[in-house]
Structures are given as C-alpha cells and as structure tokens.
Design a protein around this nucleic acid. Structure first.
Lengths: 156, 156
DNA sequence: TGCAATTAGTTAGCCTTGCTAACTAATATC
DNA sequence: GATATTAGTTAGCAAGGCTAACTAATTGCA
C-alpha cells in the first residue's frame, strides 16, 4: 500500500508521537525528587521479573549495549543492581536487581506514576478504559509486554 | 487512603508511562538521518502556528527558559529560526520559524512519524480506533490540543 | 591442536538537552 | 529617581543517547 494512501494511520501516528512527548515531559518533572534516575528506574522494572544479561536488558530497553553497560555500572555503584559473570560463558554478564534496587523501584516509580496518576485520576471510566486498551495495543506493537524477544530487530 | 483505592488508575498510569518511553525510543532512531534534533523539531512545530516569545515557547514545550534560550540560539545558528526583539518592550524576544525551518520540520517530522507509522500500519481497524481515541483522551488530559497556555506556572 | 572468526561487554569520546544559580538589560512602580 | 519586577542569557553541571575501537571469551574449522 502506498504511503500517501494512509491518511488515517498517519494522523494517528503523528498525534500519538506528540502525545508521548508531552506526557513524558510532564512525568519527568518529579524525577529530581526520587533520588533515582528515569533510565535506572526503567531498567529496574525489567529486572523485577528476574535477572537478565546485559544484552537482553539493552534490547528490552531499546538502547545500545554501551549505553546499558554504563547504566548498569552506575546502578551497581548505587547498590541497586549487581553484575554476575556467567559460570559457563565468561563473556556473559547477568544483571540482578538488589533488594535495595527493588525498594528504590517501588519508591521512585511511585513518584513518577503519581504524576501520571494525577492526570489519569480525573478521567471518567470510559476514557480510562480507552487508555487501558490503547496501552495494550502499543505494548503489542512494540513487543514490550511479556514478549520473549525472539530476535533483535536488527533492521540493517 | 485514596491511593490504594486506585489500583486500576495506577496500573494504567504505570503502563501508559512505560509505553510512552518505549514508543519514543523507537521513533528517535530516525533522528540522526534528519539533520535536525528532536527538540528543535518539536519547537518548530509550535512555531508553525506563528511567532512566539521565548517564554511562551518554553512554557509550551514545558522546559525552563534557559533551556529554550539555548535551543533557540542553536536554531538561529542553523538557520531554522530567527530572533526578533520587540519594538515596544526591549526585553521581549519573538521567535519566528524561517522558511528553511518549516521545510526542515516537514522533512524531519516526516521521518519520525514514518517510524511510528510503520508500527501503526500493521494494526487492524479496531486497534487503530482505540489508539485514536486514547490520543484524544491524552490531549485533553494534558491540554496540548488547542490550549493557548495562558501564563507561566512560575512555581517559585 | 591451534588459529581465525564471532560474540558479549567495556572504554573513550562526543553530542544533545535537561537543570539551577547568577547575571544583564529593560520596564514598571512608588 | 531609586527600587522592584520581568525577560532573557550565561556558566556550569548531569543524564543518557550514540559510534568506534577495544578486550576477553568462546566457537569452529583446517
């Protein structure tokens, strides 16, 4: 299908993109109060479901390995994560959340979510349901739900 | 405790926030190809509707004045915007998009939207409709639709 | 067996884009 | 006319992206 024939999709894509930008700028305002950075928070939330290799974590967070490598090092220094080298394959680093990390996740996440919650809390039931369904659609679209990451997109 | 009574809202807020993060990380990948930075793109899209003072622009973009000041200076250096001092009030700087800026907006924005479009284009009609409605809800929630940002928050 | 290729992660160095604090210049107020 | 307020700028810092180039470990094959 030719791109120009997709007016509806294009309109949704445009507004979705713009909405995401402004939503995050709003939520971001509370960050300085939480004592934990947004990127660390996001990574911790992935680790909540169990340890991940550094590469898996980078893929899940959609950043490049060096970015995740640095982030994890900072997290280890901050005591919220631990790096464990794989016994069988010495190249592999497995990242675990520490108890402190999980507590920080609860605390820090609560503050960010709170900002979004303050917006969401005023919605009527119908609008809330709409958001709920939309988020599920986006999660599927991006493969960020439980999706076991079959292979890196690697669009080359 | 009203907070715990809001399980549903909290869940939606949490996942909405997370979805926004991942959506933008995806869209951002095209940026290096556009020759224009995301922040400049966003500012230009505000200027599309006409010149704005620097303060108005900062408020619309939900950043602090120094951040916008620097951004606008870079945009002027890049030739995509022009700063004009107000004749009646010498403190006020009015920011205009240049023709080059508007062209860059079209180009750069198109690429980000394209990335989002590629995701959206695979959706069935029902999911697309859900996203459409959800975006409208978010726009209302944030007042980012038509809302002309009356005064600076100025939370001292 | 031993050497080349591949893979996982790290280091170095750059860039953008947030922020606060402290400043300048212009205007408004008393 | 002195003082206060307002708009924007400068300086300096931090977070968090990226690529290029590296190290170390493993795999595979001649």
């Amino acid at each position: 299908m030719p791109i120009d024939a997709r007016g509806r999709e294009r309109d949704v894509a445009d507004r979705l993109h713009s909405a995401a930008i402004h939503l995050l700028r709003r939520a971001r305002r509370t960050d300085p109060l939480t004592g934990i950075s947004p990127a660390q928070l996001s990574a911790l939330s992935v680790l909540m479901s169990g340890p991940k290799t550094l590469g898996e974590l980078a893929a899940a967070e959609q950043v490049r390995p060096p970015t995740m490598s640095r982030l994890v090092s900072e997290m280890e220094r901050a005591g919220v994560a631990r790096k464990v080298t794989d016994r069988d394959d010495g190249r592999v680093v497995r990242v675990h959340a520490t108890a402190k990390g999980l507590r920080a996740l609860d605390r820090g996440r609560a503050m960010r979510i709170e900002a979004t919650l303050r917006l969401v809390a005023d919605l009527d039931e119908g609008s809330l349901g709409t958001l709920d369904r939309a988020v599920a659609v986006i999660e599927d679209m991006l493969g960020t739900r439980a999706a076991p990451w079959r292979s890196r997109p690697k669009s080359k």
